[in-house]
Simulated assay, not measured.
Amino acid sequence: MTWYQPTETERGHLRRCVDLAAEALADGDEPFGSVLVSASGEVLFEDRNRVKDGDRTRHPEFEIARWAGTNLSPSERAAATVYTSGEHCAMCSAAHGWAGLGRIVYASSTEQLVGWLRELGVSGASPVRPLAINDVAPDVPVAGPVEEFADEIRELQRTLHTRG
């Protein structure tokens, strides 16, 4: 696996995403968090997973795409960066592409998540094939995963799948 080395600014945004993921887990939800940042560095929108109440589309990356489509011009969307604790699922990758958003920086990859779930004996966790972002949205620039967050995100997933 090739690790991405983020800048200090990127590291700060990813830290916020992981904190949002932990917040989601503490609220009984799946541990994922994301932040949308403008070309000038302003945090425009952030969210965490909110699927526990039954709407499985309430992923933070999907919410970012919806928000951006309503609140930003096409050029602002294209210049923005989405930071996220986990690489987008296929649904969120498609939403990102359709919304015309720019770069994605992720702390952990789909490949890592699939491996962690296998280690935990979790099967059937998703009704959607685990694909990399560029398998769904080939023109979106991506960077990740980031090694320093791997153990923490793995532990969030372990906690989710082993709590009673």
Rank of each mutant, 00 (worst) to 15 (best):
M1K: 09
W3A: 15
T9F: 13
T9C: 08
T9V: 13
E10L: 08
G12W: 04
H13G: 09
L14C: 10
R15D: 14
R15G: 08
R16G: 04
V18T: 00
D19A: 04
L20R: 06
L20W: 04
A21I: 03
A22L: 13
E23Y: 06
A26L: 10
A26S: 14
D27K: 09
G28D: 03
D29F: 07
E30P: 12
P31L: 13
G33Q: 01
V35K: 07
V37C: 12
S38Q: 06
S38G: 06
S38W: 00
A39I: 09
E42I: 13
V43F: 11
V43L: 15
L44V: 08
F45N: 03
E46M: 10
E46F: 03
D47N: 08
D47L: 02
R48I: 05
R48C: 05
N49F: 06
K52E: 01
K52P: 01
D53N: 02
D55G: 06
T57F: 09
R58Y: 08
H59Q: 14
P60R: 01
E63D: 13
I64N: 03
R66I: 14
T70N: 08
S73K: 15
P74E: 04
S75M: 11
S75L: 14
E76T: 11
E76G: 12
R77E: 06
R77V: 02
T81K: 10
T81C: 10
T84N: 00
T84R: 03
G86M: 13
G86Y: 08
E87L: 04
E87C: 09
H88S: 15
H88Y: 12
H88R: 14
C92I: 12
S93F: 04
A94T: 15
W98K: 13
W98T: 13
G100C: 01
L101N: 00
V105M: 02
V105F: 03
S109G: 05
S109C: 09
E111H: 11
V114C: 03
V114T: 05
G115M: 02
G115E: 08
L117G: 10
L117A: 11
R118G: 14
G121F: 06
V122M: 04
S123L: 07
S123V: 10
A125W: 07
A125V: 00
V128F: 12
L131W: 02
L131G: 02
A132Y: 03
V136G: 10
V136Q: 03
P138G: 05
V140S: 04
G144E: 10
P145G: 10
E148N: 04
F149P: 09
F149C: 09
A150M: 07
E152C: 05
R154F: 07
R154Y: 12
L156D: 01
Q157H: 13
Q157D: 12
R158H: 05
R158S: 08
T162L: 12
R163M: 09
G164C: 11
